[in-house]
Design a protein around this nucleic acid. Structure first.
Lengths: 114, 114
DNA sequence: GTAATATGCAACCATATGGTTGCGAATGGT
DNA sequence: ACCATTCGCAACCATATGGTTGCATATTAC
């Protein structure tokens, strides 16, 4: 079986852009707003934001590339909504990384007991 | 009390650089190696890496600024180790963000039931 | 049809990022 | 003392990132 001692290459490649997308204040706020306020248009999202509409659009594109949001055309509006499964992916990656640490501590404890 | 409908400004400001630090393949590998292999020197960490020692140093500095690793001078070596509490912080942030979504779904369900 | 609204597209800019190379300094081994 | 090891520092480079402005296009409202 695959040991918990390492993340597969494919996982690392998937996790990196995911975390990178979360690594910006504006994008975190966008996600929280989509999460608590539900699907919204670009204009609506940029209304209470200090950033311009175009800046928001770029951030949404980054989030979309990471799979964290999806868009849907509705008339002249573009409605963005949260892809919550992707947040769970991020949590799962963190869990795996934490497990590496826990396992290492377990091994250390065992070796000390000897 | 503070509602679950938003993350505090301070939390967003803390979470962003934390996730940003995790948003790079090389840095994720460094973290997993520190987690599974225990504290290690720069040279040791860069040995099996395609990147140069100086590049690894820069990545470690980024991780240190995010609080994910700490360093300790030991002779001519600089030993880096994982700051596992910081990984839990990241998980906690993701939990809070996910809760926004769940709460929104709960509200939606309630409003539909009426 | 015309005006207002919502978005797309492209150019442009300053700065950050990830990487390199070269060299010097500190520490350990013999 | 001498040499190898380990690291720090600084300059430099290409590209990515986050942001802007200006204008064109599509859709809705009247």
């Amino acid at each position: 079986m695959s040991p918990a001692s390492a993340l597969a290459v494919a996982q690392v490649r998937d996790a990196a852009p995911l975390f990178a997308a979360l690594g910006d204040e504006t994008r975190i706020r966008l996600i929280t707003r989509l999460g608590s306020g539900g699907p919204q248009s670009i204009t609506h999202l940029s209304a209470k934001s200090p950033s311009s509409r175009q800046a928001i659009t770029k951030h949404l594109d980054v989030l979309a590339r990471a799979g964290l949001v999806r868009d849907e055309r509705r008339g002249r509006e573009r409605i963005w909504s949260l892809e919550e499964k992707r947040l769970e992916d991020a949590r799962a990656y963190l869990d795996r990384i934490s497990r590496l640490w826990d396992d290492a501590l377990g091994r250390l404890k065992k070796s000390v007991e000897k």
